[in-house]
Design a protein around this nucleic acid. Structure first.
Lengths: 152, 152
DNA sequence: ATATATGCAAAGGATTTGCAGCTAC
DNA sequence: GTAGCTGCAAATCCTTTGCATATAT
């Protein structure tokens, strides 16, 4: 698994512009995030790297993720369960999430209509919209098929 | 400040149906939540009650809020800053929130269009929608007027 | 050379929990 | 009388931080 040359170049530039250094640890975390299209938490990355024989402390992973977020390479996601998820932002455009309460699966969605209505709504309230969190919780297709409706 | 007879009756019934007891502490927390139309955190309630000479431990407040949430009297709100907000659900219909990043103000909104689109979207994904979180973060009207645009 | 990064272990901070003593019913 | 509460203090748990050591540039 290797960071694409193009991404590596961008990362170096971004780091340099803030007097930050390209360390093996930062590279490893970067690789890990870019290699996955998923929504990973610190421990996923920690275990994944450790499993590949690259031990990086959790403290460094958190610090690196903050850096990567600041330079726009990852998105930090709070789904309200007390743990942050981090996702590759380079390969993906804006989206929101469906979250399965049964299996924890996170499904992405994009809805221009909703986005537009958010903007209109903000305008009506004279509110300067900067970012939003839109999470839909429920039971995913697979869990429904497995009968996990929850008896509601 | 007193809980309306009607609400008190509903509370008693709801508690009884789950073999729960109506204690002075539960009544106090209930009064406090019902008396306010705001979005309160545990400590707000703790200090408010203490200020009125009714000391209730934080542990009990949390436990009571859980009970009140379960019986549908309050709504628990997570705006992602690590503290839960609780709001009176009896007096209010469903709504979502605009949150000012400058002053912390929380403004409610209702948008049937967005609600409908959420439902359609879920249907398309064969997802059984149970609840959602929709938060719009930005700068409120007042803060904008005070020049708190943040240079963005 | 030295400003910046790392790892460890300890701190943080809202919320939860175990337990002994109360109390609503 | 007893199942269910309360308050206290300790535990949780993810995340952050202080500090001594190591390293990218």
């Amino acid at each position: 698994m290797e960071v694409a040359t193009e991404h590596l170049k961008r990362l170096k530039l971004a780091l340099r512009s803030e007097s930050l250094r390209l360390t093996p640890q930062r590279l490893a975390v970067m690789e890990d995030i870019l290699a996955s299209e998923g929504h990973r938490e610190c421990d996923d990355i920690f275990l994944s790297l450790r499993g590949r024989g690259i031990p990086v402390s959790r403290a460094t992973i958190y610090r690196t993720l903050d850096v990567l977020e600041q330079v726009g390479f990852v998105r930090k996601l709070n789904i309200g369960d007390g743990r942050f998820r981090y996702e590759n932002k380079l390969a993906q455009s804006h989206h929101d999430h469906l979250i399965c309460l049964e299996c924890g699966r996170i499904i992405e969605f994009v809805d221009r209509g909703i986005e537009r209505q958010q903007e209109n709504l903000s305008r009506e309230h004279h509110f300067h919209l900067i970012r939003h969190i839109h999470l839909l919780f429920g039971i995913c297709r697979e869990c429904r098929q497995n009968g996990a409706e929850g008896g509601g």
